[in-house]
Simulated assay, not measured.
Amino acid sequence: MATAPKTASLPLFYKDLIPLNTQEHANYSARSTNKAAWMVGAHAIPLTVEEFPMAQRHYPIVFSTGDDPVPLALMGMNEGVNVFVDDDGTVNTPIYVPAYVRRYPFLLAKLQADKPDLSLCFDPTSELIGEFEDGKPLFADGAPSASCQDTLKFCEHFEQAGARTGQFVAELKKHDLLMDGELNIESGQAGGQPFIYRGFRMVDENKLRDVRGDVLRGWNQSGLLPLIYAHLFSLELVREIFGRQVQLGKVAAPQLAQA
């Protein structure tokens, strides 16, 4: 059900990446938009832990499978379904939009694998960046404009939040709190088979109850414990997401849905 973004080539949403530079892109501008076409069909979108308090009000938060779990905003119960975004990219319901979405089409990336430095890059296939008469210029007098500097700061903050998210997940793994999840949703028809969703991970509440008191106290003081409960409380929204899929006619016959 919930798969991590594909990282074999490019991150989720990105079709290409090139570094932004003053020589080639001196006349480039960035447009704003009220549509997010890149979100169409994205059923699971990465989240950082600092987004949990807002995100848990709107959609379930789960974790991807694999050795390095990633927190995900679950916007659809099946791959290819995002119940919050219309086919033209219009967000049809007031929700918290993840920073991962708002960062596009920019991204901080390493240009050389053996060096830690990150450079501001962008997806050249995006219609939001180019030599436009409208939009906000990315450079002024050969230097990054205020708008470009704000974008860089946003991407830097996202990377920092990503590092904190990694520490959060590492703590969950250290105490073996993540388990394979399974969700059973009744079909609503008499005698009908339930819909069973797997392919994600979640915090094991039984193991959470057995965590030592001093560890829980430390988590409460550091703010980690409220984040765990934000994740657990958010799972109550699964049936709401499922109900939206039913209304959209995007629910197949009851079966096992697994990433």
Rank of each mutant, 00 (worst) to 15 (best):
M1H: 12
L10F: 12
P11I: 10
Y14W: 05
Y14P: 03
L17H: 08
N21K: 12
N21P: 13
N27H: 15
S29Y: 01
S32N: 05
S32L: 11
A36W: 08
A37S: 05
M39R: 01
G41I: 00
A44P: 01
I45M: 05
L47W: 05
E51H: 00
F52P: 00
M54L: 15
R57G: 10
H58F: 13
H58R: 06
Y59V: 05
I61N: 02
F63R: 11
D68H: 14
P69T: 02
V70A: 02
L72C: 02
A73F: 04
A73Y: 04
L74D: 04
G76V: 06
G80H: 00
V81S: 05
F84Y: 15
V85K: 04
G89A: 07
N92Y: 01
T93M: 13
I95F: 11
V97G: 08
Y104Q: 03
Y104N: 01
P105I: 01
F106R: 02
A109S: 07
K110I: 07
K110Q: 06
Q112K: 14
Q112I: 10
S119L: 03
P124L: 02
P124I: 01
T125C: 11
T125W: 10
S126K: 06
I129P: 03
G130L: 02
K136H: 14
A143K: 12
P144T: 01
S145E: 05
D150M: 03
T151Y: 02
F154D: 03
G162I: 02
E171K: 14
E171V: 09
K173M: 08
K173F: 12
K174G: 00
K174P: 06
H175L: 03
D176F: 14
D180K: 14
I185D: 04
I185G: 04
S187I: 10
P194R: 08
G199C: 07
N206A: 15
V211K: 06
V211Q: 09
R212Y: 12
D214F: 11
D214R: 10
V215K: 08
L216H: 07
P226G: 07
H231N: 06
R244E: 11
Q245Y: 09
Q247N: 15
L248Y: 12
K250T: 13
A252C: 06
A257N: 15
